[in-house]
Design a protein around this nucleic acid. Sequence first.
DNA 1: CGGAATTGCTGTAACGATACAGCAGAGTAG
DNA 2: CTACTCTGCTGTATCGTTACAGCAATTCCG
Lengths: 351, 351
Amino acid sequence: MEVLGLMTAPKMDVAKVTLRDVAERVGLSVSAVSQALLDGPRIGTETKARVREAAEELGYVTNSAGRALRARRADAVALIVPNTSQHVFGHSYFMHVLTGVTDAANSREAQLVISTNVDEQHGKAAYDRVMRSGSVDGAIVTSAAVDDEGIAQLVSSGVPVVLLGGFPVLPDAVSVGIDDVAASYAATEHVVRDHGRRSVVHISGPLDHQAAIDRRDGFIAAAEHYGATFEVVEGDFDEESGDAAAVSIQRREGVDGVVAANDEMAFGAMRRLAADGHDVPRRISIVGFDDFGLARVTTPAITTVRVPAEEMARLATDRLFDLIGGVRFTGPDAHAVLPTELVVRQSCGCP
Amino acid sequence: MEVLGLMTAPKMDVAKVTLRDVAERVGLSVSAVSQALLDGPRIGTETKARVREAAEELGYVTNSAGRALRARRADAVALIVPNTSQHVFGHSYFMHVLTGVTDAANSREAQLVISTNVDEQHGKAAYDRVMRSGSVDGAIVTSAAVDDEGIAQLVSSGVPVVLLGGFPVLPDAVSVGIDDVAASYAATEHVVRDHGRRSVVHISGPLDHQAAIDRRDGFIAAAEHYGATFEVVEGDFDEESGDAAAVSIQRREGVDGVVAANDEMAFGAMRRLAADGHDVPRRISIVGFDDFGLARVTTPAITTVRVPAEEMARLATDRLFDLIGGVRFTGPDAHAVLPTELVVRQSCGCP
DNA sequence: CGGAATTGCTGTAACGATACAGCAGAGTAG
DNA sequence: CTACTCTGCTGTATCGTTACAGCAATTCCG
């Protein structure tokens, strides 16, 4: 700065320092400076140091558009949240995912673009544009409905994409998820085997979502295996639908166990049952699914399945960068399954 | 393209359709096509229609790097979360903000870039780079510590920035917030006036944050006005610090009211007091602040101040786009204050 | 010691889009 | 009939960066 010892304007005009300015400063060509900053092999060690120093002093920051245009790489990834998912998944799920993704993206110095869809109509267009405009190098897609055309198309178009969460297995897709069937089986097992409940109801998620389907199937398998009578009521992952399900449960005689496909519905059901005078957890066991925060703070606290959303997101992002880097995942390698854990609290009847 | 009339591959390589392809298709120059798609005034109506149709057919999507480079505009905004805030604010706050920002950004067809800071060291560099690289046109900054140098610098550097939340008033900055003092006064007033509590404790947030300072000041003003004895315990907005504060509260005789600077601390304190055999809310009133979700689901549900985070974020984003568009906010106009609301539930002693 | 390899830089040509000057041709006015 | 204004397009320069060919020096090697 203090070139002439003059008072220079303190307001250095943002984003105006280009490679040429740096080049002039060190008396080199623009390309030499570019190569120096990229640590190219054909530039002298001492020159690199001089260039870096000058760049630092001038406050040079690579213009992302220029780089993206020429290098055909945006150094950015998108987190795509189909509108359906946005509605279906609560806030907390998304937060965990976001934490994991930002973490991984940050450590690669990549930017993170959030892409949600405004409405069903322009749904496809939204992420399609993001991908095709070249503003990101790849995307993480959080669970969409099983019949989501756009996602399937996105995957088959060859752009680097990693699916996150309970997905219909698109054979060509790379995905990170959990074993919803097994986890739901374990939760149900705890209710019917460990607590001896004989008549259980499952409050499922919307059954056009793979996670909802799998959790229901795990429930049914366990109920059948242990010879409990059971029924499935379809909800939509919202607290209100848990409440509604609890109303219908009360019309049924002798229900002593409720397995919900997520914690919000479990909470809705629990609150309704308690309000209507049922003794939870003594007479009725309730378990949830997710453990994204809610289950821990209710009274009684909800026994649930911990879904490692943050780790999933981190792994998904790592794989995405691998994909972008040219790595190809094939066969079973393409589908990572992370372990879940039954978190025993009080809503099931445990002390 | 179809130079030899050969069968071309049906798998159109993603993001490969450029303006030139469209131009060739309709038999126009590249610039004509560009102007047509931008709805320029010097292009014939019928030509525009033909161009749009061809672009649609070919699946043309504007390359964002090309546009950004030439048009000096990224059509993207950043949501900057200083690491300090990320720690200080819970997940739910951020989610509400995110919802508001995405909404507003979506409706302007702008992309949203999330920028969190990895660590304290490179903290400044992180958002500095985002801004200077030209990859966004402006930024929303969620509340930082009062002494955050980087933010002040960012604001004075002239890039479009809107501060969100309880900020030290940087005179030149555009901000959107609430009246923390008044809201905290109202919450405290409810405890001391409406419930007749005479010895109240405030669990504050970290006092290097303006919101924490203001909420404490509102508490003190109300306590003094109604002649209650009071004390302030500093927490850090985390549930654990509410728990810790409750421990210290129990060493003090006769405390019958707790005003926490957020719901998580209120919950931590409430849970600890209940566990230690105190009758909340009959003997001790507790109120929180925020109403981002937690307060509604606890038992008893927490009386709190609703902070309209989503609306704040939406307004902040709208103002950011105004700034980017050249609008200047001066004087009081620069600082929007949204109304809060006391949400009365059971933790204060109301039925 | 002559030719080959290496080192360290320069110069040029893109990447894709857009702003703007320019330029035909048609219409209009005096 | 000249001079002017529109209208609707073409052509060119440019945004900032990077890939790559080229080209002097210098070093290496048998």
